[in-house]
Amino acid sequence: MTKQLVDRFNQTGQSTLAVTEVPHEDTSKYGVIDPDKEVSDGLYEVRNFVEKPRPQDAPSDLAIIGRYLFTPTIFDELENTEPGKGNEIQLTDAIETLNHKEHVYAHKFNGKRYDIGSKIGFLETNIEFGLKHPDTKDELRSYIKKNSKDSLIFFI
């Protein structure tokens, strides 16, 4: 993911962050972009950044996924950002202000993303990596089969 952001930064010379499509009903869990236009395949100029909008207020389903490549100007914006949602200083608010001074681009991430921000996402990630790792895959597979009451686990 980092290489993708570096490549986009080298293309634009501007701050760039990673986004991915999320189910519309999940937009309230993320900062979401309001894309202005797609300037090249998967690279967006952004009109606005919205912190955790209700689904009915979300300007898109493109969620910020916690990977950023900023110009140093972001530090000035963070220093001057007032507490927002949850009475916390929100990075999304600083990005929104930065976007009015210089372009901030959004890059639609290509690849598999692991969301460990939820309990189930954390567990799914660990199980998937555990089943791929040569030191753990056999024991984990055995454990899952032994402890599963669901006969559909045969595919493991």
Rank of each mutant, 00 (worst) to 15 (best):
S28T: 06
P35I: 09
G31N: 03
P83M: 09
K108A: 07
D57G: 04
I64N: 04
K37L: 07
F9E: 02
H103F: 04
I127E: 10
P72T: 12
R8N: 07
G86Y: 11
T20A: 09
R67M: 12
S118L: 12
G42C: 09
R113W: 05
D93A: 10
E38M: 03
I65N: 01
G117C: 02
K29P: 08
I65C: 05
Q56S: 14
F70Y: 15
S60G: 12
T27W: 00
I74T: 07
N10G: 15
H133T: 01
S28H: 08
T125D: 07
L17M: 15
L43I: 12
P35F: 06
H107G: 02
L69A: 10
E88V: 13
E79R: 13
R67Y: 14
I33H: 08
D76A: 12
T12E: 03
Q14H: 13
E82T: 13
L62Y: 03
A18Y: 03
L69S: 07
E102M: 08
K119F: 15
E38Y: 04
N10T: 15
T92G: 04
P35T: 03
V32E: 00
E79P: 10
E45C: 03
T16K: 00
L123C: 14
G42A: 08
F129L: 06
K29Q: 11
S15G: 06
L43D: 01
L5C: 04
T81L: 01
H133V: 00
P23M: 05
D61V: 06
P72W: 14
T20E: 06
L91A: 00
G13Y: 04
G130M: 03
G66Y: 00
I64M: 04
H133S: 02
L69Q: 08
T12C: 07
G13L: 08
D135R: 02
P59Y: 10
D34L: 09
F129Q: 12
N48L: 11
K85C: 14
Y114R: 06
F70W: 14
N87E: 12
D41E: 14
I65R: 13
A94L: 14
R54P: 03
N126E: 12
G66Q: 01
L5Q: 02
K132L: 02
Q4M: 07
Q14E: 11
L131W: 04
V19G: 02
D7T: 13
Q11R: 09
F129D: 10
T71D: 15
E45S: 06
T81N: 05
D115P: 06
K37I: 08
K37E: 14
V19D: 04
D7C: 11
S40F: 02
D26T: 15
H107E: 05
E25Q: 12
L62I: 00
P72A: 14
L5T: 01
L5G: 00
K101R: 05
V6F: 15
P53V: 09
L91N: 00
P53N: 14
I65Q: 04
T27C: 10
K119R: 13
E79K: 15
I120K: 13
K101N: 05
S40M: 06
H100Q: 14
